[in-house]
Computed example of a mutant assay.
Amino acid sequence: MQTTNFRLLKEAEKIVERRGAREASLVLIQGKFGIGKSEMTERWASENGHVFIRAKKVWTPRSMLEDIAAELGVAVRGSAKDIENRITQHLAQTMQALIIDEADYLADMKSAAKLETIRDISDVTGTMVFLVGMQDFPAIVQRYEHIASRVARIVQLHPLSLADVQATCKAKAEVALSPALVEQIHRDSKGRMRHVLNAIANIEVWAETNSWTEVDVAHVKGKPLCTDFTGHIAANKGV
Rank of each mutant, 00 (worst) to 15 (best):
R62I: 03
E66G: 03
I83P: 00
L181K: 09
D120I: 07
A97H: 11
V74H: 05
V182D: 10
G191Q: 05
G78L: 02
H146P: 06
V155N: 06
F229S: 07
L157Y: 11
L9S: 02
M134S: 13
N210D: 13
I118P: 09
S63D: 09
E145G: 03
C226S: 08
K237R: 12
N236T: 03
G36V: 08
V129Q: 06
K10R: 15
L28H: 02
V239I: 12
I185Q: 04
V215G: 01
Q184P: 00
T213P: 00
R194W: 05
E23Q: 14
K57D: 15
S46F: 07
R153E: 15
G36I: 02
R187S: 12
L9W: 10
T94K: 06
G126N: 05
S111K: 09
E39L: 13
L157T: 05
R19D: 12
R54K: 13
I121N: 09
V220I: 09
Q166Y: 10
A21T: 12
K32I: 15
N210P: 05
S38V: 08
A199K: 01
E145Q: 06
K10S: 15
H195F: 15
K32S: 14
Q30D: 06
E84N: 12
E66Y: 09
E174F: 11
K57C: 08
F137E: 04
C169A: 04
V165Y: 00
E11R: 13
R62T: 07
W206N: 03
A107F: 04
M109F: 13
H158A: 10
E42N: 11
K223D: 04
V155S: 08
G20S: 09
E23W: 13
V124Y: 12
T227Y: 11
Q142M: 07
L106T: 02
T230F: 08
